[in-house]
């Protein structure tokens, strides 16, 4: 059964992956973590990245490009992912779309010299879909 752990193991197979987490962006809760985290504390990292994800998801300017969406269904962020580049790494926050009301994203921390941002972004999107579609 593909679940949170299998999905995190898949994420860590990406070249340059240093750490990853499944995070709820409303509460800042880490639902699952793997590998390292930039400050050595996965729970604190989750709370901080959740705030970034929430800001992106709730900005009206990004919400404009929403595709077709059933108004009765739970709102889904129009934002697909948030990418932050630092001197030594890349961070990709990928929103996970679920059939029940949730606010979940995948966070991948990549080493900048070993990681491939474009490839990782596509793969992370596929993994986010697999997580909720068996």
């Amino acid at each position: 059964m593909p679940g949170i752990d299998e999905c995190l193991l898949d994420v860590m197979r990406l070249p340059g992956a240093r750490g990853a987490a499944v995070v709820d962006w409303t509460s800042g809760l880490a639902l699952g973590t793997i590998g390292e985290s930039p400050n050595g504390d996965h729970e604190a990292t989750a709370a901080e990245t959740a705030e970034v994800a929430r800001m992106a998801a709730e900005q009206p300017v990004f919400a404009q490009d929403r595709g077709p969406h059933d108004p009765a269904a739970p709102p889904v962020p129009a934002v697909e992912d948030v990418i932050v580049t630092t001197a030594l790494g890349y961070h990709i926050l990928r929103f996970v779309e679920t059939a029940f009301d949730s606010s979940v994203f995948l966070h991948l921390w990549l080493d900048r010299s070993e990681g491939n941002l474009a490839l990782s972004r596509i793969k992370l999107g596929e993994i986010a879909e697999r997580l909720v579609l068996a």
């Binding site: 679940g3 029940f100 697999r130 909720v132």
Partner: peptide, 21 residues
Amino acid sequence: LVDSGRIPGGALELCHLGALY
């Protein structure tokens, strides 16, 4: 629920963990 294909395993884990906390 998962074995009978009613709900994907990952989705159940996400929903259940959320409900638990």
